[in-house]
């Protein structure tokens, strides 16, 4: 099923735009590298109008986990359910992304495929309170902080349209991605104040890390859009890109919400989550074919 999905994505993001480009009116065609203005395109022109690039990219991700349905192991008897809702930090924890990028250039369009390692990190908090109604000073408040660290192999497909401004080539980008989860961990810290025995005693546990891969499904699917610029530096292209990714589905494994959760005893259960992110990447692209006698890739 995943292979079919991948083939469909390739068709949708790669072949369909290429085919549609072919159908465009010839009169609207621009003149590109190596082409004589007004001349009828031939096979040589097509060769000169295209380029393959390959390179590497590295960057950072800032993740937003959006709760679409709240869950808790705690089912309160004498206080509102909402008290157990979690609070999520947004775009607070940087993650690493690094990998390869393959680009096919044709007539201003860059069709890219960038398999890469991608890390998403997000934090959420919850708390619990027990008190003595007959003695307001006697209470115990416990705060839980969970840092979720997820590592994906990411397979994005994108289309960038670039504008020519001297050596800079600003672009706009749209695309989609399919990612598969490799590993996930949860780091949790317990803190709070214990006023059960007269004084105010701080509760501060060590930070513990546990495996959390089974709490999430393997797949992550979404769409993305962004802006950036190429810079032609000699024979290579430097690429700077900023994009926003929108997760399209719940990434929490609903079947394992309670059963494989080592923190269930603390009341913790994963919400249904959609994961969005801001991504900033820097890359370098090398040409795979040379279009002029002086071995330059572009004019």
């Amino acid at each position: 099923m995943k292979k079919l999905l991948l083939l469909s994505l390739i068709y949708f993001f790669v072949l369909a735009p290429v085919l549609s480009q072919k159908k465009r009116s010839k009169s609207k065609q621009k003149t590109y590298v190596g082409q004589t203005p007004g001349a009828r395109p031939n096979k040589k022109d097509n060769f000169l109008n295209t380029q393959w690039w390959m390179g590497m990219r590295i960057g950072t991700t800032l993740t937003e986990a959006v709760s679409t349905a709240s869950y808790s192991v705690l089912s309160p008897i004498d206080y509102p359910d909402e008290f157990n809702n979690k609070v999520y930090d947004q775009y607070n924890n940087p993650g690493l992304t690094a990998g390869l990028e393959f680009v096919f250039f044709i007539k201003g369009f860059n069709i890219g495929f960038a398999p890469n390692y991608r890390q998403h990190v997000f934090t959420y908090r919850s708390n619990a309170l027990w008190s003595n109604p007959e003695n307001a000073t006697q209470k115990t408040e416990v705060n839980y902080e969970h840092v979720v660290d997820m590592e994906y192999i990411d397979l994005p497909l994108s289309i960038k349209y670039e504008f020519e401004v001297k050596d800079f080539r600003p672009f706009v980008m749209v695309g989609g991605y399919y990612s598969t989860l490799m590993d996930a961990t949860k780091e949790y810290t317990i803190s709070g104040v214990d006023q059960s025995t007269g004084g105010q005693v701080p509760i501060q546990s060590e930070t513990h890390t546990i495996g959390a891969t089974d709490l999430f499904i393997k797949s992550s699917l979404g769409i993305m859009a962004g802006v950036g610029t190429f810079y032609n530096a000699g024979n290579v292209r430097i690429q700077f890109e900023a994009s926003y990714r929108l997760g399209m589905h719940n990434i929490t494994n609903a079947n394992n919400r309670y059963t494989d959760n080592r923190l269930a005893g603390l009341g913790d259960a994963m919400d249904d989550l959609k994961m969005n992110s801001i991504n900033i990447n820097l890359g370098i692209l090398l040409p795979l074919k040379f279009l002029s006698k002086n071995y330059r890739a572009t004019e």
């Binding site: 099923m1 995943k2 089912s75 109604p133 589905h249 609903a254 919400r257 309670y258 059963t259 005893g265």
Partner: peptide, 23 residues
């Protein structure tokens, strides 16, 4: 199809703690 496995109409396994505030 790919994500339908993640739709659970009724939890077949769960854990619940029935909490009260009372000290």
């Amino acid at each position: 199809c790919d994500l339908s496995d993640n739709e659970v109409s009724k939890p077949i396994s769960f854990h619940k703690i029935y909490d009260t505030r009372g000290f």
